[in-house]
Design a protein around this nucleic acid. Structure first.
Length: 289
DNA sequence: GTGATTTGACCAGA
DNA sequence: TCTGGTCAAATCAC
């Protein structure tokens, strides 16, 4: 079973991480490098295998029932997971690209399909959206945006979009013409300290108050994440692609166990067929080796 | 006291 | 001129 192969690869990687962790203080640099390489290769292989698996699953899903996938959003570069209870059907597609004046940044046409409806966020390159003096204003067709749809929490504070592992500071809220709900503006808490240009806009969908449209602008340069990630939404970059979707889970152990590291006390959701399927942690006694 | 949020005002692009 | 994005003072929370 491919899923089990992937899982065993992941668990093997985690085991390597734990081994490295326990021997870290006395580890010589050469040995450290070797271990890191082995860990990276293990997770990389697992990641490649997982992508192939996801592709197969998506193909089979389209032929079967498309109403309740665990994977909310799948692009060629990323996958989005949500709590099973919050699942809605999304797909995320990224269209054509071209190069910016610097020749390095792509211009994206982002489309989100929600229940058959396609929402489009036109995007382009145009530099960071950070502020300066005099106040810089962003043209509608420039700037690098990443738009995702996020299910609202149905318990607790449903006014807030689920945590995306970054700390944000709200700096404005606006009533938007034609929208029932106001749009909230956030910037990175560390904007001043690290000159971090990351911002995001959060707005409820008119026809689905339990869904937020979250638009990220600018990438985080602070690399500081909240210390108490939730599992509500996990956006995991599955390749080395550098786009920051605001949920910078940079390795699989982090994605699975949270930023507090292997052994953090949390369940995790894995994007396989069964939404209720949760895998045991390594230290629960059953070693998947 | 410090940092976050609220909210009216300001400003620039369309 | 309208609208969306940002500023900044006031207020709140810890």
């Amino acid at each position: 079973m491919d899923q089990e192969v992937v899982m065993s690869m992941i668990f093997h990687g985690i085991k390597l991480v734990k081994t490295l962790e326990s021997s870290l203080p006395e580890k010589p640099p050469e040995s450290l490098s070797t271990s890191l390489g082995e860990i990276a290769k293990t997770f990389g292989d697992a990641n490649e295998r997982l992508k192939m698996l996801l592709l197969e699953m998506r193909n089979s899903e389209t032929a079967l029932n498309q109403t309740k996938p665990v994977i909310v959003s799948v692009s060629n570069q990323m996958l989005v997971q949500m709590e099973p209870g919050l699942m809605q059907e999304y797909s995320f597609r990224r269209g054509g690209s071209s190069t910016s004046s610097q020749g390095t940044e792509a211009i994206f046409q982002t489309q989100l399909m929600v229940g058959g409806r396609i929402l489009t966020a036109a995007e382009g390159s145009g530099g960071a959206s950070g502020s300066s003096t005099p106040r810089l204003r962003r043209r509608k067709d420039e700037g690098e945006d990443q738009t995702v749809l996020v299910a609202a929490l149905r318990t607790g504070n449903t006014d807030m979009p689920p945590d995306d592992n970054h700390t944000w500071r709200k700096y404005g809220q606006k009533e938007i013409l034609g929208s029932r709900f106001p749009r909230a503006y956030y910037r990175c808490t560390h904007q001043k300290l690290y000159n971090c240009p990351a911002k995001k806009q959060v707005q409820r969908l008119d026809d689905d108050p339990f869904t937020f449209r979250v638009t990220y602008r600018g990438s985080h340069t602070c690399h500081i994440y909240s210390t108490a990630p939730t599992t509500s939404v996990t956006v995991a970059a599955t390749t080395g692609h550098s786009i920051d979707y605001g949920s910078p889970i940079h390795d699989m152990t982090d994605a699975m166990f949270g930023s507090s590291g292997v052994g953090a006390n949390m369940d995790f959701i894995f994007p396989f067929n069964d939404p209720t399927q949760r895998f045991r942690r390594l230290d629960d006694g059953d070693d998947h080796q």
